[in-house]
Design a protein around this nucleic acid. Structure first.
Lengths: 174, 174
DNA sequence: CCTATAATCGTCCATAGTGGAACGTCCACT
DNA sequence: AGTGGACGTTCCACTATGGACGATTATAGG
């Protein structure tokens, strides 16, 4: 009926804060939900166009730089509310490093561990950033909840990475 | 040049173990790399067709049930080797529960915690399964490495979920 | 004030990934 | 002999990714 996909729903959710252009929505999506729900620019524009067709958002007069803000309609608000009460599905992880690792028999272990080390610094950096945010009182409890996920996740990844040299170099057999 | 996408590369990797049909590849991919790299059936068939066009796999005479096995060619082996030495990119997580959670202000906390509880049991079950595998000596060190990721990950998710009631119910403000 | 540079904004396109419907074949079991 | 389930393929609609291209506006330095 009025069903929207999660990405469209996210845009509707963000539009509750007031009208915004595709670019702005993409940008805020990146900042607020980008760590667990990617929205590309093309996608934002396409979903907005579809939502407009279906009357869930309404294009406003264009501003400078031909910026076209969209405003949430009642129908859009309703569709968002409907989407919100659908039990969320399982997560989906795509981790190229693990894919490479699983074919490790065709590569040398040192190379693998280099890849791991490169990723490690990025994860350490993200953890540091998350922990800064965590100390910041400006976030509400929902943002804090997702932030806490990030912290647990990054810590797990780091712990795992620290374990890898022992596993890979530990034994040459298998 | 001979660049293949990660999914195609995974199929080439699996084909090192001997010729296989699209169905078989999909099935083994699910089992071996499915936890961090999903390959759908349609995708497996499509990538095989593309790889065949490019001469990286070769269709063998069809067997029963019009099963068409593919065999790795030298060119395919080379393409896989090339792919393997490309540093793997960052992971990509799509977690609908976190998306819903980030819009938690429009939902009641009890409902959110119900969603969390439902997911929790699935994660607990996966952790249990992983830990069984971890005790099994039949896995080589590369499989064990990816398995260890799963264990760290599931533990992190569970720890996070156990923290949530305190965060969501702890304070009504923000 | 002027200009280079960066940020904002939109469109378009090729490629990649998801999920399920539809359909046929073969096997095991009753 | 019939039937349910596993195997196997095709096709399709929808969703997502990432980058190219081009235009406009803000802003910072000279």
């Amino acid at each position: 009926m009025n069903d929207v996909n999660p990405t469209a729903a996210a845009l509707l959710g963000l539009l509750h804060a007031g009208e915004a252009t595709g670019y702005q929505l993409w940008d805020t999506a990146r900042e607020f939900i980008g760590d667990f729900w990617t929205v590309t620019r093309s996608q934002a524009y396409r979903e907005l166009a579809r939502l407009a067709e279906r009357g869930m958002v309404q294009a406003q007069p264009t501003r400078a730089r031909s910026a076209r803000p969209y405003r949430l309609t009642d129908s859009g608000r309703a569709a968002f509310a409907e989407w919100l009460v659908v039990p969320p599905g399982p997560e989906n992880i795509r981790y190229p490093l693990l894919l490479t690792l699983s074919f490790g028999q065709f590569l040398d272990d040192d190379r693998l561990l280099e890849y791991v080390a490169e990723h490690r610094s990025a994860h350490a950096e993200r953890l540091r950033r998350y922990q800064e945010f965590d100390a910041d009182p400006m976030f509400d409890k929902y943002q804090r909840s997702t932030l806490r996920f990030g912290i647990h996740y990054e810590r797990a990844v780091l712990a795992w990475m620290d374990e890898l040299p022992g596993i890979l170099r530990g034994s040459d057999d298998d």
